[in-house]
């Protein structure tokens, strides 16, 4: 089967055991969430360390549902969930005190200037009035809305609304930020600047972030860890760098000799080959297969290997493979 090794999820689980303990931002154990009659999250388990975590998956994968369950908005039908060491079902308010939430929807409180809105959000989180006003100015400056902070939010553009949603999430100094599709509706420049800001928050301000997005680029730019959801199940999870390496590796090879014979020989061994115009061949390795196979085939087919380099997968390829495997698993269980 093409794609991730079957042991992928379990490898990641053991990989994180040493990272977790008290430093994990959330722990989910066999979580099932139904909305009405529909099962949205199907028996998912995951655990993530502090830092920037990407929640990745196509639309309808269950990302927003997972975030809302973590906030205590939705009650799990089965399983355990802990956010910052607390159970959002029983201690929802305490969890939300330490969380900043930037919703996906275009949401605001009408009739307020930006600074009133953000300070009001700060006060709702328990900041004293003067402190809330001071921090509202700071958060708005920080999010690039310093010049527009006395304008009513109703008059803001989409990009500005995204930023003010971030400012209201930041104002009370949370330990963890939930960002649900933060680059929605932004132009390329706006997207870049929003992602830069999120990166700055995680790296300079030491605030952990869970970034929910269906955009691979956003997650790859900002996050160190990723949880890939597909049809309500975990397709993959772990450190992005590790996932890329653990995923099926591929090599770029240049040979001297008959390329067609060499490719045919590789394909006979079940390896995927993709020749390119510049006389290079991309070879995707099978699980547990060493590079010595390539050298042996080259020797047998009379070709000389002149160049051979490992090609790292992009997150896009990792994501595609994970989804492909999840699809295969689902089909197998249905069969």
């Amino acid at each position: 089967m093409n794609g991730f090794p079957n042991t992928y999820k379990s490898i990641n689980h053991s990989l994180f055991q040493n990272l977790m303990d008290s430093t994990s931002i959330f722990q989910i154990d066999h979580l099932i969430v139904n909305l009405g009659r529909k099962t949205i999250l199907r028996d998912i388990s995951a655990e993530m360390p502090q830092g920037a975590v990407g929640l990745l998956g196509p639309n309808g994968a269950g990302k927003s549902t997972l975030l809302k369950t973590m906030m205590g908005f939705l009650k799990p039908d089965k399983g355990q969930i802990k956010v910052l060491g607390r159970d959002p079902r029983r201690e929802g308010a305490q969890v939300r005190q330490r969380i900043g939430y930037m919703p996906e929807e275009d949401t605001y409180m009408p009739g307020m200037t930006a600074v009133e809105f953000v300070s009001y959000c700060g006060m709702l989180c328990g900041l004293p009035r003067n402190e809330a006003m001071l921090r509202a100015h700071q958060a708005l400056h920080y999010c690039g809305l310093g010049e527009a902070r006395y304008r009513t939010v109703d008059t803001y553009s989409t990009g500005m609304r995204q930023r003010i949603k971030l400012a209201q999430a930041l104002v009370h100094d949370p330990d963890l930020l939930f960002l649900d599709e933060p680059t929605n509706g932004l132009d390329p420049q706006g997207r870049k600047s929003m992602l830069d800001l999120i990166q700055e928050i995680t790296r300079q301000k030491n605030i952990s972030v869970i970034l929910s997005s269906h955009l691979l680029h956003d997650v790859e730019t900002v996050c160190d860890y990723v949880l890939v959801l597909f049809q309500g199940s975990v397709a993959a999870s772990g450190r992005i760098q590790d996932l890329k390496q653990m995923a099926q590796s591929s090599y770029i090879i240049r040979i001297k000799g008959d390329m067609e014979t060499f490719i045919d020989a590789l394909r006979e061994q079940g390896l995927e080959c993709q020749p390119s115009r510049d006389s290079r061949i991309q070879v995707r390795m099978k699980e547990k297969l060493g590079t010595d196979v390539i050298f042996r085939i080259a020797h047998e087919s009379g070709a000389q290997i002149r160049h051979m380099a490992k090609e790292e997968m992009t997150l896009k390829e990792v994501f595609a493979s994970a989804i492909q495997q999840s699809n295969g698993d689902a089909a197998a269980s249905e069969g």
Partner: peptide, 21 residues
Amino acid sequence: YRQTYSHYEGSYLPRSLAWTL
């Protein structure tokens, strides 16, 4: 913005007052 945003070191008011806000 880099000079302004900082972590909050004060205390939070009790949640029971939220409805008054």
